[in-house]
Design a protein around this nucleic acid. Structure first.
Lengths: 352, 352
DNA sequence: AAAAACTACGCAATCGATGCCGGCATCGAT
DNA sequence: ATCGATGCCGGCATCGATTGCGTAGTTTTT
């Protein structure tokens, strides 16, 4: 009866557990050595004779031995993986940044775990907790548009988890940050519109608590001031869900165009830019409103209405942020001085 | 000297290791219980008195105890995470599929690890190995355009790793598959072009070894045959890197348009569609060539030249595939019968 | 009242790999 | 010949959590 029930138990475990890869013990047994000897031979320990090393290495090769990273993580108390929090991978800016992140991470032996918030605060909290539980060694964060409470991140930071922000940074946290020069980028775009002859330039902005929102608005206002155009609050609208809700963009743009329309709109981010164009196409087909906005989409050149766009060096930003993060992770002494890196954007004029 | 060296060693370990979360042992010690009791109390074992359970639970709550998933993975020999192989997340089809994958995975307690091949065979091999080493419980695969040798996947499959294909499936492998009805989708798109009055319809196809390529070509040819239009091999071009190399698309399209241009092009996938439009815009601005193609981009409506598009139910496909994969993973008996699910596409006419 | 059963918990092995010790040869030096 | 120094390797504990088995102490059964 006992044996029978054990048999049943085995049968009722998920099948995937039945495949058992070769372990260091198997090798030790097969070669009549101790596990410690095998372990040291495998990592080339100097205390093992060349002869034994060769035997072990050859055998390991033969049976296609792979050391178990889970066991290693447990022992070393680190997982060699870093978490990435972004609003969505479908956004070209973030997918390019992720490419940059991966390029550095893989080359340094780290794995990348991506988590999407879809600009929702709740999902950000859940995902951050989830990642923290999965024993990541560090976190790369671009805040969600909705996030106003940062305690989920601050708690982890206090506990010693290395965190680096990129793009949408949290200025109040004392850690590395990577962003683009949003003030300058916004300034250039706005000035471009001014030089095109526009006088009434609206600004479609992201959620007001985001770092990028304030910076881009600052560039926008500085350009207006430089050219003696008054800043009109009625020409500035925020999208507090970052465009996650399609309607909020449409509503904001329609408020611009329905009464006393502007002759140009400066848009603060990717999804807003395309949402803005959609709305214009729908409700103001022949309006000749110029649009300039932040976008890293590869399709911009094909868009109609056309979009002059500010491109951020997303790949570079991802690389930089990851390098900094891995620096913290592997640092041997506490880091006191944190950097804030800023990379330049490029303006691509377009359209009539 | 010994103590000193130990001190140095500690100093030279990465700082991140110095943060030590509460373990079950800490709780046991604090409460003067054994670890087994704590463990069982935490998971509500029936052999622990209600009184003790409450004490343990309360204390665990108080010190914010989280069980270590790494330790669990080691013990249980599973990681509750599934790997996803796609060509790139920037592609809307895949990012939507990933949303579907995540929705199912998270709800069932699995983590999702995404890996991009960028349609390169080499990266596919590396990433698959990498994921396999990270002890994933199962793999969701959409093949890279370049892949012709499948041994890296077949090896894992033989070893018992659950694998489910979606979109770009490997027909020769006996496992679950999810795809859209590519034949029908291509047929409808081609017939739509025919009904628009087009007679010479070119076909810009993906790498010839991909499952989707053959299927979509079949639909294309069936539509032509139904309407008594001869299939012309010169009007069919393959992009063997799936458009990863931008030039290959441009070259293919230019061969179509430079001599005896067609009056329409049916394009087999997302990146090819946009690449095709770019080329047309660049070299055949006023050609009036109609384009219909597979695309899940949300920007299609804004494109110029315009694109009639076939949309795949990406989110649904991701969901289905993940459900099937988790079924295999958690199955208690060997699975003999594998399903191939096919979901319908929708055609969205556009343009003049 | 003796036996059986049950409650509530502890001990120790386990998962895979590592690393500190300690031990046994062998060799050279005194 | 004896001692110390190596070279080479095995034993054992460890990382965090789970679990089969054993066992006090109490309750129920006969």
């Amino acid at each position: 009866m006992y044996i029978f029930s054990k048999f049943i138990l085995k049968l009722f475990k998920p099948l995937s557990l039945m495949f058992k890869p070769t372990t260091i013990k198997d090798i030790a047994k097969a070669l009549n050595l101790s596990t410690s000897t095998v372990s040291r031979a495998l990592r080339g320990g100097y205390e093992i004779s060349e002869e034994t090393k060769k035997i072990v290495l050859d055998y390991a090769e033969k049976v296609n031995f792979k050391r178990n990273p889970i066991a290693l993580s447990l022992k070393e108390r680190r997982s060699y993986s870093i978490g990435v929090i972004v609003c969505e991978v479908a956004n070209q800016f973030f997918s390019q940044a992720i490419d940059g992140i991966e390029s550095v991470a893989y080359s340094k032996g780290y794995h990348v775990i991506i988590s999407q918030t879809h600009d929702s605060y709740d999902r950000e909290v859940i995902n951050v907790e989830h990642l923290a539980n999965r024993s990541i060694d560090g976190l790369l964060v671009s805040l969600s548009a909705e996030t106003k409470d940062y305690s989920h991140l601050e708690k982890l930071h206090e506990q010693g988890l290395p965190i680096v922000f990129f793009d949408r940074v949290l200025n109040s946290m004392n850690t590395h940050k990577v962003s683009s020069n949003n003030v300058k980028g916004a300034f250039e775009a706005t000035e471009f519109l001014i030089k095109k002859g526009c006088k009434r330039i609206a600004h479609l902005a992201n959620a007001s608590q985001l770092s990028i929102t304030a910076e881009r608005q600052k560039g926008y206002e500085e350009a207006l001031k430089k050219h003696n155009i008054p800043v009109d609050d009625k020409l500035i609208k925020y999208c507090k869900h970052g465009g996650r809700d399609k309607m909020e963009v449409e509503i904001a743009v329609r408020e611009f165009i329905d009464h006393d329309p502007p002759d140009a709109i400066f848009v603060a981010s990717d999804r807003l830019s395309t949402g803005c164009l959609s709305t214009l196409k729908k409700y103001a087909t022949n309006s000749n409103i110029l649009v300039a906005g932040f976008s890293n989409s590869e399709l911009v050149e094909l868009l109609n209405p056309s979009l002059s766009y500010i491109r951020q060096p997303a790949f570079e930003m991802g690389k930089k942020a990851t390098e900094m993060l891995i620096n913290i992770i592997e640092s041997k002494y506490p880091i006191e001085e944190f950097e804030s890196i800023m990379l330049d954007t490029t303006l691509h004029p377009n359209g009539a």
